[in-house]
């Protein structure tokens, strides 16, 4: 049940590169990553690729297959047409390091800018009580395997390098939503940090025009747009009418003024 399949794999580095054609044997049940491994073991021992689990759990093997952003380890060869050449290219939004490996440090920088969970000061470890229904919303977002396919796909940054500074991308806006929906996050009470406002002011939520392209490519089938981004946008709107919040914002800016006067 084996057959020969034509592949066109992008090879090169930050200075540029080109497609290289390969004719590879494919066996029953194989996924694209198997083919890449066969290439490494035969014709192209130095073909660079990232992977770890080969089971769709670690989010390392992201690439574009026939132009579609996907995990190589979860793309079965049987789902691709046999009569045309299969193309494998690195994710387009991130700079290429070599062959199929890209520099995804953008994502780690953005991750670091989302203020972490703030534990409530009045609860000791072991005293946390949360209902399943209340944790489920955030749990959906925590299924994220950080493959960065959504980040790669979102049009706000895909062809707009200039937006990368202001926009954290769907993965990290979703992280803000996750913390905002965490039943015990004390960021607001203890640090005066309103996560909704942060999404808007610091992470560029306004750039998102809810096209859902991110949701379409998510291998974990997380409803990023419907369950994270849209609710976050709605909360931001509510915020504008929330007197408590307006007061607090004013107080904060006053505090800032005072500090600068003193300093």
């Amino acid at each position: 049940m084996s057959y020969q399949q034509k592949f066109s794999v992008w090879r090169g580095d930050s200075d540029g590169g080109d497609f290289v054609e390969y004719d590879v044997e494919v066996n029953e049940g194989e996924v694209v990553l198997d083919v890449v491994h066969r290439l490494q073991a035969t014709e192209a021992p130095d073909l660079a690729v990232r992977w770890n689990c080969k089971a769709g759990k670690c989010g390392s093997c992201s690439a574009e297959i026939n132009g579609r952003p996907r995990l190589m380890c979860m793309t079965r060869m049987s789902t691709l047409p046999q009569d045309t050449t299969v193309s494998i290219t690195p994710m387009r939004t991130f700079p290429v390091i070599r062959d199929l490996v890209t520099d995804v440090s953008f994502n780690y920088e953005k991750a670091r800018e989302v203020r972490a969970f703030v534990p409530p000061a009045d609860l000791a470890p072991g005293e946390y009580r949360m209902q399943q229904v209340d944790v489920e919303r955030s749990q959906e977002f925590r299924k994220c395997i950080e493959c960065f396919l959504c980040q790669n796909t979102c049009h706000v940054v895909r062809d707009h390098e200039e937006n990368k500074l202001a926009f954290s991308g769907p993965r990290f806006l979703m992280r803000v939503a996750e913390l905002d929906m965490h039943p015990l996050d004390a960021a607001e009470d203890q640090e005066g940090l309103n996560r909704k406002a942060a999404a808007q002011d610091e992470h560029g939520l306004g750039y998102c025009n809810i096209t859902k392209c991110c949701t379409e490519v998510c291998p974990e089938h997380i409803k990023i747009t419907d369950n994270a981004l849209i609710p976050l946008k709605e909360r931001v709107v509510d915020l504008k009418f929330d007197p408590m919040f307006i007061r607090r914002r004013k107080r904060k800016s006053k505090e800032k003024e005072q500090v600068s006067e003193e300093g």
Binding site: A116, P119, P125, Y128, Q131, Q132, V135
Partner: peptide
């Protein structure tokens, strides 16, 4: 949990 983990309940 104090680091933010959300186990099933």
């Amino acid at each position: 949990e104090t680091y933010g983990a959300l186990f099933d309940r």
